[in-house]
């Protein structure tokens, strides 16, 4: 027999139902009957006990065991398929670094600029300047570092990044600083040249 969900089931000995008392309390209008009736008053105590317990649950004291986060992150790391990599110029042997990891570093670098927060970040290798007649050999703004023993030129990348910026921050200096950080991060931390950096401000924030 299916329950009739509209019919109250908690009938009190006085003929009313728990739902009636609940309804009254919800609307803040406690009737005379409720006040004087022992059964309704008992129901009211139950409702108040429920409300109080609910308040405790809003800030529920139970916590998962401390190792859960690490366990989940380990499971997630195993999931990571071999993501696309950027080749690093180590010489005869092949070395690469996942683009995902580089993007994380670049976001971090952008975040160091006050008022800037990185969102989308894409990194793509650019054609080798030796085989690409269009690219200038002296274009590298990312000074030095990296092992560069390969083709003689440090491999280059293009970075596309979107940012959100704190309302009121002057944009030009901020973008210049972000660009500088990205170039330096690629050169110093990775060993590649950030030849092209495209930045887009997509949102403003206020704190």
């Amino acid at each position: 027999m299916a329950l009739d969900r509209t019919a109250p089931a908690h009938e009190l000995p006085c003929g009313r139902h728990v739902e009636d008392v609940l309804d009254e309390l919800d609307h803040g209008t406690v009737s005379g009957h409720t006040r004087s009736c022992a059964h309704c008053t008992t129901a009211r105590h139950g409702i108040e006990a429920l409300n109080e317990a609910t308040r405790i649950l809003l800030d529920d004291p139970v916590e998962p065991e401390p190792g859960l986060v690490d366990r989940i992150m380990s499971a997630v790391r195993v999931e990571i398929r071999h993501s696309e990599g950027l080749t690093l110029p180590t010489g005869a042997d092949h070395a690469d670094i996942s683009i995902r990891a580089v993007a994380s570093l670049l976001r971090f670098a952008a975040d160091t600029v006050p008022g800037a927060r990185a969102r989308h970040c894409r990194v793509e290798p650019l054609p080798d300047p030796e085989t690409d007649p269009g690219a200038g050999a002296g274009a590298g703004a990312g000074a030095g570092a990296g092992a560069g023993a390969g083709a003689g030129a440090v491999p280059a990348v293009r970075i596309d990044m979107t940012l959100t910026v704190r309302y009121g921050t002057p944009l030009e200096p901020l973008l210049e600083q972000v660009r500088a950080q990205l170039v330096a991060a690629m050169a110093g931390h990775i060993g590649l040249e950030a030849r092209t950096v495209n930045l887009d401000v997509v949102d403003l924030w206020d704190e």
């Binding site: 703004a141 990312g142 000074a143 600083q177 660009r179 500088a180 330096a184 050169a187 110093g188």
Partner: peptide
């Protein structure tokens, strides 16, 4: 930090 300056 100046544009292009390496800071490592």
């Amino acid at each position: 930090v100046q544009a292009g300056e390496a800071f490592w």
